[in-house]
Amino acid sequence: MSTLRSAKVNRLRSSTPSSASSRSGQSPRIGASLRQRPWLERAVRLVAKLITLSFLLSFGWVVLLKYLPVSFTPLMISRKLEAMGEDQDSRLYKNWTPYESISKEVALAVVASEDQAFPAHWGFDFDEIQDAIKDNQHRKRPRGASTISQQVAKNVFLWNGRSYLRKGLEVYFTFLIELIWGKERILEVYLNVAETGPLTFGVEAASRRYYGHSAQSLTRTEAARIAAVLPNPRLFSIKKPSAYTQKRTRQIARQMRYLGGRAYLKNL
């Protein structure tokens, strides 16, 4: 019996280090590996610092733009450089205008046209995303499902183009502006930075350039026409609307009525 008891004790003792090792996980091995390779340890620390710094800078940038006008976006700069490269007039038409000074007809028009679930979602319309995925299986030209929040995140903070990196950053900035800015500020920025014509950004600049008056006095039809060109303002024209643009304008005006008019945006 004593021999059997001693064998059990020895087995327990021999198993103790491996059990402790399994409980500790892989961190001792990783730590040892890093110590054996000083350059790898320095690289890991550098990457960690860069990630932390990037987060702090982006967070601070978003907080700052909650209160300051968005004077320039990457898209504005890109359009200006294109015009300069083609020896064209590169003047940008833009007039930052507070939300209170913009007709709620145009605010409603862009929501009716671009993102009817805007007041309710948290930056992403998952139902619309699923519908777009299904539709795109049968379409030559894929349709997007970006919300107004996603478009603002892309226009204000990111570059043009398609990549997993840019899409991932779009998700990140969309989450931040929904959390920090709130719906009214997001819509205010969208109405000021959206491309509305050649070298023209924002509804105030479009209203003055194409209608001859401020965005505060936009009619429902005028507002709907601005919204109608937003998918491709370099192809569609507010000043010289095509048959398609006129048809789309009427459709948006009907949607504005179905949504209940300006009251739809009352509680942003």
Rank of each mutant, 00 (worst) to 15 (best):
M1E: 15
A7D: 08
V9S: 11
R11L: 13
L12I: 13
S15L: 14
T16S: 10
P17S: 08
S19A: 14
S24G: 13
I30E: 05
L34C: 06
R37H: 13
W39Q: 14
L40S: 14
V44N: 03
V44F: 10
L46E: 07
K49P: 01
L50C: 14
T52V: 12
L53A: 15
L53F: 14
F55L: 14
L56D: 11
L57W: 08
L57C: 09
G60H: 07
F72V: 09
T73S: 06
P74T: 08
S78D: 13
R79N: 10
L92D: 04
L92H: 06
Y93C: 00
W96C: 03
E100R: 15
S103D: 02
A107D: 00
A107V: 02
L108K: 01
A112I: 02
P119G: 07
A120T: 12
E128Q: 14
Q130H: 14
Q137P: 03
H138T: 14
H138W: 10
H138S: 14
R143W: 04
A145M: 08
A145F: 08
T147W: 02
Q150G: 03
Q151C: 08
V156K: 00
L158E: 04
E170Y: 05
E170H: 07
V171F: 14
Y172K: 04
F173Y: 15
T174H: 03
T174A: 07
F175A: 14
I177S: 01
E178Y: 04
I180Y: 02
W181G: 00
R185D: 05
I186L: 06
V193Y: 01
E195D: 05
L199T: 02
T200S: 07
T200L: 03
V203W: 01
E204N: 07
A205S: 08
L218T: 01
T219S: 15
E222Q: 15
A224Q: 01
A227S: 07
A228E: 02
P231I: 11
N232D: 15
R234T: 12
I238H: 00
P241Q: 07
A243K: 12
A243H: 09
K247W: 13
I252A: 03
A253K: 00
A263E: 15
A263I: 11
